[in-house]
Amino acid sequence: MKKLTISLLLLPLMCALCYNCTDGKVETKIDDSLIENGIHVATGLAYDENFELVRALCTSCHSAKLITQNRATREGWKDMIVWMQKTQKLPDLSTAEPIVLDYLAKHYAPEDIGRRSNLDMESIEWYELSEEE
């Protein structure tokens, strides 16, 4: 309901993306308030009213990339949380747990990709290859 207000508030952002890559070292400064296509750019997490809660609870040990890489049902996400609680020192999330699970199940749900996907045509960069000597 308030999503629209939030995104409107965030629209007038300075362009603060600055990549400075040298060999082996990646220096990146991303404006923390940057939201693009519903994604919080600095973390890569889906941006909605529960984003801040998930970010605060889930990115202290590892980056959000471990979340955004994964896909699971609500039950599957619950299993991962239980596993982290049993083995990785994740504390009890108490009343936040259902909110976090709803967020994860909504934004990172599995898709049926079959037994083997097509090569990803969109990601292929075609190039002319000349014969090798």
């Binding site: 309901m1 308030k2 207000t5 939030i6 508030l9 009213e49 529960n50 984003f51 801040e52 809660l53 605060a56 609870l57 504390p91 009890d92 999330l93 108490s94 009343t95 936040a96 909110i99």
Partner: peptide
């Protein structure tokens, strides 16, 4: 801001 803050404060363990 807004809703986020409320949800956050209420549920943060």
């Amino acid at each position: 801001v807004l809703g986020a803050e409320m949800v956050f404060a209420k549920h943060f363990p």
